[in-house]
Write a protein that binds this DNA or RNA. Structure first.
Lengths: 216, 216
DNA sequence: CGGGTTCTTGACTAGTTTCAAGCAAAGTGG
DNA sequence: CCACTTTGCTTGAAACTAGTCAAGAACCCG
């Protein structure tokens, strides 16, 4: 994924020139995109953390995934007529705005970029697959280990870690809502392990790097 | 989604002419794509049911989603260097084969079709989102109701239902593995309800049609 | 009519949530 | 600058949910 972010920077120039409609700064806690509505824009995260989530009518919330710099949010709003999830800023956020109506032009005129969008979509899918495996089949402690490790690695690849240390911007409630458990239960399971291999064992997690986009 | 499958048929002609490398018939239980390997092909399901799944080393299995006619499987193998999930035939299956190496040509020469691939990818994502919400936050009975209803509607849109009745091809173990619970537990919760609205209430599920691909 | 597969049931155990209370750190306003 | 409030974390106990084990019934296929 480190290669993928370098690749992202390379194509960014022309991407920005053609499609960018400005930047947006939002504060922690802001709802960037709301389930059930439609947005005229999609966004790339330039800095900060966000998360995608869905809620049930009685308030139960499931966090689906986190978005970090380089990630695209709101593609769904450009494909379907309404968003089926919400996106909230976990930290102060800088977003790059792309108007929805230019989305089809991207496919017709910039196949490389269209491929990138699809690649990001496939990567999002594979993260969701892994999350679903976690929530459905890993035990509470495995899930927690997995999530911390997964997020640490994503952040690390973006240069957001300080060696083996990192300051995550989320609270216990976010962890619980991501892993499908109660806040109280999540409490018993969180602890810092400085041994990454041991954490990986607990998580039943494959530490191997996922290669970046192949040059097919 | 009924509109989307009509759309699929429309573009199928040129799609098939250019990219199709043949058809493949496989029997129930066949592993079509295997986690950890790479495939030279991706497939469209022409008839039958398949399912995507992941396993942990000790055998725990999580079914991620089902693939029905019109669905694409194996896109991941064309984007990354190995599959991160497996695909198994739930019934006898007819697949349309697309060679992986023509995938980039699809983006450069057929933007409409590239858009379709991305659209399918976004739809898969929204189904995964909903599954994750189910497994993480719905109760066992809500999950079951949701799954049955979701699959019924997908099958119905493809003309696979007989009024309000349908013969699902899966076993209790599949339901349990999809919903993240044990086979025994799944047993207590499965029952047929002929009242779709009541089932939707139980599932906390929005019965409104999702519109097909908008003409942006 | 076997023999295997799938489903069902009951009893027991383990895991998880809920409720309730207290604590610590950070932010706020007089 | 210090009470006061808010927010997030921690803990314990009780209630509940779900998993495991085990055995038997029903079904399907050759």
């Amino acid at each position: 994924m480190s290669r993928s972010s370098r690749r992202f920077s390379e194509s960014e120039l022309e991407f920005v020139k053609e499609f960018k409609a400005g930047e947006l700064n939002v504060e922690t806690g802001t709802t960037v995109l709301l389930e059930g509505t439609n947005s005229a824009h999609l966004y790339t995260v330039l800095s900060g953390w966000a998360f995608r989530y869905k809620t049930l009518p009685d308030g139960r919330r499931q966090i689906l995934n986190f978005a970090l710099p380089g990630d695209l949010v709101g593609v769904q709003g450009s494909m379907f007529d309404k968003m089926e999830h919400s996106v909230e800023a976990l930290t102060d956020l800088t977003l790059c705005i792309f108007p929805r109506e230019k989305f089809s032009k991207l496919f017709s005129s910039y196949p490389e970029l269209a491929f990138d969008v699809t690649w990001l979509c496939a990567r999002e899918q594979s993260i969701l697959d892994e999350n679903l495996l976690s929530v459905g089949r890993r035990t509470a402690i495995e899930r927690t280990a997995y999530l911390l490790l997964h997020l640490f690695r994503r952040a690390e690849n973006l240069g957001l870690a300080d060696g083996d240390k990192i300051q995550f911007p989320f609270f216990q409630q976010h962890v619980a809502d991501t892993l499908g458990m109660s806040l109280v239960h999540a409490n018993n399971r969180i602890f810092q392990i400085l041994n990454r291999k041991r954490l990986a064992e607990i998580a039943v997690y494959d530490l191997n790097e996922r290669p970046a986009r192949p040059f097919i």
